[in-house]
């Protein structure tokens, strides 16, 4: 059995600050009218818990992850209009033998407070003006920003492609009559505010409006994360036809001057009540190390999600390697997730 690990001071401080924020909100919500700002107004607040089990064929083992946190959405509004929106999602995540885990966990048995979206988007300049976002946000690149897969088995290639899925920083975002856009500068620390010297992420996406049945987006990305520098240029699309959807993303660039080409293609289907979602996804990763020929990896995923009501979401996904980098052993991963939002 794993023993309790030492929690660095920065983690403890972040957890304490987040707990203090939620405590303040709870006290304000419990006694509206006694504070200068009534936090209960225009507030959405939900306790969100989930449990995930993952079976790794290659390692012949099963891992688990238990997650509990708050999903908070608060629109600050004045007499003259909206001022901005606070989205705060902090989740205590406890992993046990989670062999394949995001890099911000120390190992397969780590536990920590994980920030998903945790930012304030200032909209006080007016309806037709850009907005300013500060905090922890998804890197604006490719499909992820418009389909949003946080906390679900259904995922895009955001993390593996960019080396980071969300980060602390600032962005300018907005909509025009035809397009939506977001340009971000972030610190490169991922889950932590701390950054190594020289780390940075610059990213931006310009896309057609996401409500349309055919959505196109162009993205650019440049980062220095630890010892690795990355650049990417990407194109993404979504095409909705009846109950079917076709999603695609292709990006090219380099990792430390080694050419990279990554892509995702997905077909999904929802039933008319949209309680069921089924998807078939193919992910392609390739790199050309020092112009010595392309090395490729190909994965295929089949998944299903059932949402019987506003509380429950049950998901299952089967992922298999069709080919791997440098001929490594191919793995098959089966995941189950149960999620409840109070």
């Amino acid at each position: 059995m794993a023993c309790r690990k030492y929690q660095p001071a920065s983690r403890r401080r972040a957890a304490a600050a987040t707990a203090a924020l939620y405590c303040g909100i709870a006290l304000n919500v419990a006694s509206p009218g006694t504070a200068a700002i009534d936090f209960s107004d225009n507030l959405r607040l939900t306790l969100d818990v989930s449990s995930r089990s993952v079976r790794y064929s290659l390692a012949d083992t099963t891992g688990h992850s238990t997650v509990a946190g708050m999903d908070l959405h608060k629109v600050f509004s004045g007499e003259n209009g909206d001022i901005g929106t606070l989205t705060a999602q902090a989740y205590w995540t406890d992993n046990n033998n989670l062999v394949k885990h995001p890099g911000f966990f120390d190992d397969e048995d780590d536990n920590r407070l994980v920030y998903r979206i945790f930012n304030f988007n200032y909209s006080g300049f007016g309806l037709h003006k850009p907005r300013l976002r500060f905090g922890h946000m998804e890197i604006p690149f490719g499909l992820e920003q418009t389909i949003n897969t946080n906390g679900t088995l259904h995922d895009s290639i955001h993390g593996p492609n960019l080396g980071i899925k969300a980060d602390w920083g600032a962005s300018i975002n907005g909509e025009t009559a035809t397009f939506e856009y977001e340009v971000a500068v972030t610190r490169g620390g991922g889950q932590t505010w701390h950054r190594d010297n020289g780390d940075f992420v610059y990213a931006g996406r310009l896309g057609t409006q996401r409500h349309r049945n055919l959505v196109w987006g162009l993205s650019a990305y440049s980062s220095e994360l630890g010892a690795t520098s990355r650049t990417r240029f990407g194109i993404d699309m979504q095409w909705y036809k009846g109950l079917w959807a076709l999603l695609g993303e292709v990006s090219t660039g380099d990792n430390d001057n080694q050419n990279v080409l990554n892509s995702l293609l997905e077909v999904n289907y929802r039933n008319p009540t949209e309680q069921w979602l089924a998807y078939l996804q193919t992910r392609y990763f390739s790199i050309d190390p020092n112009d010595r020929g392309w090395d490729e990896a190909l994965q295929s995923l089949l998944g299903v999600r059932y949402t019987p009501d506003n509380h429950w979401a049950l998901s299952a996904q089967y992922q298999t390697d069709l080919s791997t980098f440098r001929g490594a052993a191919e793995d098959r991963v089966f995941s189950l997730q149960l999620r409840y939002r109070f």
């Binding site: 939620y22 405590c23 909100i25 709870a26 919500v29 419990a30 209960s40 507030l43 959405r44 607040l45 939900t46 306790l47 969100d48 708050m70 999903d71 908070l72 959405h73 989205t87 999602q89 998903r116 979206i117 949003n148 946080n150 906390g151 949402t307 009501d309 506003n310 509380h311 979401a313 939002r341 109070f342």
Partner: peptide, 15 residues
């Protein structure tokens, strides 16, 4: 504690 103050839920994450 906060759960007591939680509001009627929305199936998808608020983000």
């Amino acid at each position: 504690l906060l759960g007591a103050a939680a509001s009627p839920v929305f199936a998808q994450a608020y983000c």
